[in-house]
Design a protein around this nucleic acid. Structure first.
Lengths: 208, 208
DNA sequence: AATTGTGAATTGATTCACAGCT
DNA sequence: AGCTGTGAATCAATTCACAATT
């Protein structure tokens, strides 16, 4: 899969690719063979020019006068995102939120599988078929299974230290739920999710 | 609490306010009385000019030559965000993710309380002390308790229909976990969280 | 006739540079 | 001397306008 000038592409454009993909999959399920940028953009909640501009970062995929081939564009975006094959992910920190996410079956549907979880104190609560392992087995496990992505759900006080361990073990993508700005080498990428901040943000806007 | 020209303030600046607040609370816990924009910005992972610019949207709070009073600035941001008092939130859609979030105790610590959950089919699985109610009681409950915010964790196929019900019931802030762009009146605000998209986004950046 | 692809224009956000306080 | 507050300058993202293509 050719993906040329990755550096100048806005981060938000990549997020939108995921949104477009979801819309395309719905269209595909409805047996729609093609879609115009106008229709797809409406479904994704953006302007059609933005959709077209986003796609031009990666090449030309449409047919003028006709639109885009739904299946082909969906496959293209899947290739770009690298979610063709099921990707192994580990989860670190089996507290409240970690347990919650482990019992969430939604990741598998989207191409990700949490293959193991880790905690300093591996507790009684077994979770389905996935092993819950002590932290000292993390490095070996990650190496052996070639895991690249981790979901981080440890308390904020432990987050930076655990991150250091993850990075040392070879993890290059971290989905961080701890409310702290993690320090990582520049080849490691961190996406932050903070549910409390999302609620606070709503709170700000609904006042008045 | 005076909050003047709300319209022109960048959305991202509001998100950053939440981040600053968390840093300030840590400083406060460490008994630091004041902090410079430089130090606070470093903790928050932004440039000091950005922090100062963000604050000027709301007024002038620092002392030149000295910095900001930690406690006072924390209180100010709390006031701005409207999280002084515990805010009631409902959760709709008690499937996998909904159950997961109900068992997550992290919201209370940040000023939000899920006071009830709703589902078309209120199942056996009781969750702690919170009532799990059928959808037809939603409107009355929201009205009676003055609830303004909802966490939406229904399947994507039901998301728009349930959103319509929420809006009709008087909800004005929705934290949406369904992978769909919700149509709402302009006085209703929606924040989207999509864990699969966050993982996909990581996936894109770690390839190579 | 319809619709894409894209350089130019515009809008928005961030950073700079420094004036103004304490 | 140190640090905030902010207009001006820069940088980035979005939208426009239209040429190119089927």
């Amino acid at each position: 899969m050719k993906r040329p000038p990755r550096l100048e592409i806005p981060r938000k454009a990549i997020y939108r690719l995921s949104i477009y993909l979801r819309c395309l999959l719905r269209l595909k399920a409805n047996r729609l063979p093609t879609v115009s940028s106008e229709a797809l953009a409406r479904a994704a909640g953006v302007k059609s020019t933005q959709l077209r501009k986003d796609l031009t970062y990666f090449g030309q995929f449409g047919t003028r006068g006709l639109g885009y081939d739904v299946e082909q564009l969906a496959q293209l975006i899947t290739d770009l995102l690298g979610t063709n094959s099921l990707q192994p992910v580990i989860l670190v920190g089996v507290g409240n939120l970690g347990t919650a996410l482990l019992s969430y079956r939604g990741f598998e549907q989207e191409g990700f599988e949490i293959i193991a979880s880790f905690d300093i104190e591996p507790r009684r609560g077994r979770h389905s078929t996935k092993p819950l392992l002590p932290m000292d087995q993390l490095a070996a496990f990650v190496h052996e299974r070639g895991v690249k992505m981790a979901i981080l759900t440890v308390p904020v006080t432990a987050a930076q230290e655990v991150t250091n361990q993850l990075v040392a073990a070879g993890i290059t993508g971290i989905l961080n739920f701890a409310p702290i700005v993690l320090q990582v080498p520049e080849d490691v990428i961190v996406n932050n999710v903070n549910l409390a901040i999302e609620l606070e943000n709503l709170s700000y806007f609904i006042q008045g």
